[in-house]
C-alpha cells in the first residue's frame, strides 16, 4: 500500500501532506478550546510535546504497537490538560492565556532536563510509523468527532459559555465542568497529533515545542476563522503550505511569513472562513441546487 502511494505521490509531498494533517488534528483541538469554548490558551504545543514524547518512548523503548501508544500519548496529554485545567481554568481571558503560556515553558524546560526524554540533545531513532493512510484516517476521525461535538448538547453548552459565562451558569450549565472537558478533549487531540509528529520526523527536541509553536497553532485557528471547523482546516493548510511555497525566497522566508500574518490579520480580520461551518456550507449548496432547478 505504502509503496503504491509513493509511486503516485512524491515522498516530499507526502511528508508535507502528513504535516498538514497532523497540524489539522492539533488545530481542531485548539479550536474546540479557544474557538468554541472561548478559553484562550497559549500552551497548546506543550500538550503536543507530552503526546509526542509519551508515544515515542512507548514505541521506541517499550515496543508497544504504534496506534496503542498514540492513544496512550493522547490520554497522557489529556490527563495533564485536566490536571492543569482544574486550577487554571478559574482564570479568565488573557490571564488564562498567560498561565497556559507559563505551563508550556515549564514543560519545555522539564523535557530539556529529564533523562528519559534525552534532554537537550533530543530523542532520536523513533520508528517511522506515520504514513499518509493512518494520518488521513485520524484526520477524518477527528473532524467527524468535532463536528458531532459541535452540534451536540455539549457543543451548545460550550458556545453558551463562550458568549457569556455568567448567563450560561444561570441557565444551569456547570461552566467549570464543561470547560475542563473541552480542555481535556482539546489536549487529547493535541497529544494524538504529537504522536504522529514524533513518528513522522523520528526525532524530537524540546525546543521544537516552545511558545512559538503554540502560537503557530493559534495562527492556524485564527487565520481560518475562530470557531469554524472548515476554517481551521483551510487555515492550517494555507499556513503549513505557505513556508513550503516560500522556500524560493530562502532566508527571507520567515520574514515574509511574518509580514503575511500581519497583512492577513489587517485585511481579513475574521479569518478566511470566519463564521462558516459545515452545516451552512451544505445549506448553501442545497439552496443553489434548488435555485438552479426552479
Amino acid at each position: 500500500m505504502e509503496q503504491w502511494l509513493s509511486s503516485v505521490i512524491d515522498p516530499y509531498y507526502q511528508q508535507v501532506l502528513m504535516l498538514v494533517g497532523i497540524y489539522i488534528i492539533a488545530a481542531l483541538g485548539l479550536n474546540l478550546i479557544t474557538g468554541l469554548c472561548g478559553q484562550l490558551t497559549f500552551g497548546h504545543a506543550a500538550f503536543l510535546s507530552i503526546g509526542a514524547y509519551t508515544a515515542a518512548i512507548l514505541t521506541r523503548d517499550f515496543h508497544l504497537p504504534f496506534i496503542l501508544s498514540l492513544v496512550l500519548g493522547g490520554l497522557m496529554a489529556a490527563l495533564f490538560g485536566i490536571l492543569l485545567g482544574i486550577p487554571v481554568l478559574r482564570l479568565t481571558g488573557d490571564y488564562l492565556g498567560i498561565a497556559t503560556l507559563g505551563f508550556g515553558e515549564i514543560v519545555r524546560v522539564a523535557f530539556t532536563n529529564m533523562k528519559i526524554t534525552g534532554g537537550a540533545i533530543g530523542l532520536a531513532a523513533i520508528p517511522r510509523a506515520s504514513n499518509l493512510i493512518n494520518v488521513t484516517f485520524f484526520v477524518i476521525l477527528a473532524v467527524a468527532a468535532v463536528v458531532l461535538l459541535e452540534n451536540s448538547r455539549f457543543g451548545r453548552a460550550l458556545k453558551a459559555i463562550r458568549e457569556d459565562e455568567i448567563a450560561a451558569e444561570a441557565m444551569g450549565i456547570n461552566a467549570m465542568w464543561y470547560k475542563i472537558q473541552a480542555f481535556g478533549i482539546g489536549c487529547f487531540l493535541a497529544g494524538i497529533s504529537g504522536g504522529f509528529y514524533a513518528h513522522l520526523l523520528q526525532y524530537l527536541n524540546p525546543n521544537d515545542f516552545g511558545f512559538l509553536k503554540s502560537f503557530e497553532i493559534l495562527n492556524f485557528v485564527v487565520l481560518g476563522g475562530l470557531g469554524s471547523i472548515p476554517g481551521t482546516i483551510v487555515g492550517t493548510t494555507v499556513l503549513t503550505l505557505a513556508p513550503e511555497f516560500l522556500r524560493f525566497v530562502q532566508e527571507y522566508r520567515m520574514m515574509i511569513y511574518g509580514l503575511l500574518l500581519v497583512l492577513m490579520m489587517i485585511f481579513r480580520p475574521h479569518g478566511l472562513l470566519g463564521g462558516v461551518n459545515f452545516r451552512r456550507l451544505l445549506r448553501r449548496r442545497k439552496q443553489k441546487a434548488t435555485a438552479l432547478s426552479s
Binding site: 512559538l212 493559534l218 495562527n219 475562530l226 520574514m255 511569513y257 511574518g258 500574518l261 500581519v262 490579520m265
Partner: peptide
C-alpha cells in the same frame, strides 16, 4: 486575538 497575532507576526519579522 487578531491584534495579538499581528504582534507575533511583527516579532517573527523583526
Amino acid at each position: 486575538l487578531n491584534l495579538l497575532i499581528t504582534t507575533i507576526g511583527v516579532s517573527i519579522f523583526l
